[in-house]
């Protein structure tokens, strides 16, 4: 290792930076099945995305951050959580880059690596849905809404919509459940193991 000390002063930083970069790139590339080096920043993706105004980075910028290997920046951004996976970007990209798959992969990496989440209310919602699925095997929307509001403290926000839905019997009071509850519980074991 003594050879290292003979390097010019700027080299250690360069070496350190070169270390994690390819692995993050490769990991994202492999897991998303997307070849994003083809991007030439035309921004068709961002121009088509319906939710771009609620994002902190535009979809093409997220892609660029990945290219630069900026793992933390990208895994902690809001954009990956705001993205609903509507595939509008993917279907408009002239280079056929599947950005929705890229976003999917980045969300999973953020969950797996336990980084601070850029849009916590959205992950709270997903967890509330999963709690319902674990209990009943199906989504009980009233329970999800109540649980989610309890977590986020937004009881009054949206009350009118909730009441309208109740009045139209769009929110069932009682959940319907899967009979083979054991099979469902069993599926969730992997989830708690992997995410906690």
């Amino acid at each position: 290792m003594s050879a290292l000390t003979l390097q010019p002063a700027s080299a250690p930083a360069a070496i350190a930076a070169a270390g994690p970069r390819p692995s993050f790139l490769e990991e994202v590339r492999e897991r998303s099945g997307t070849e994003f080096s083809l991007c030439y920043q035309c921004q068709a993706c961002a121009n088509g995305c319906p939710f771009v105004s609620a994002m902190d980075y535009r979809p093409n910028q997220v892609l660029r951050l990945v290219q630069f290997g900026m793992r933390e920046e990208v895994l902690q951004c809001k954009t990956i959580w705001v993205c609903v996976g509507c595939h509008t970007c993917s279907s408009q990209c002239p280079m056929a880059i599947d950005l929705a798959a890229l976003m999917d992969t980045l969300r999973l990496l953020a969950v797996e690596q336990g980084v601070p989440v850029g849009k916590p209310n959205i992950i709270d919602f997903h967890e509330e849905v999963l709690r319902s699925l674990e209990k009943y095997g199906r989504a009980h929307k009233l329970g999800i809404m109540l649980g989610y509001k309890r977590q986020t403290g937004g009881w009054l926000q949206d009350l009118d919509v909730g009441l309208k839905m109740l009045a139209k019997r769009k929110l069932e009071l009682f959940p319907s459940r899967v009979k083979a509850g054991g099979e469902i519980a069993d599926l969730f074991r992997c989830y708690w193991r992997e995410s906690r």
């Binding site: 699925l133 095997g137 599926l187 989830y191």
Partner: peptide
Amino acid sequence: WNCCGSSSAQTMCRNL
């Protein structure tokens, strides 16, 4: 039948 998993399971855990 059970829920297809929806975007919530897709987001939180691939195996689930």
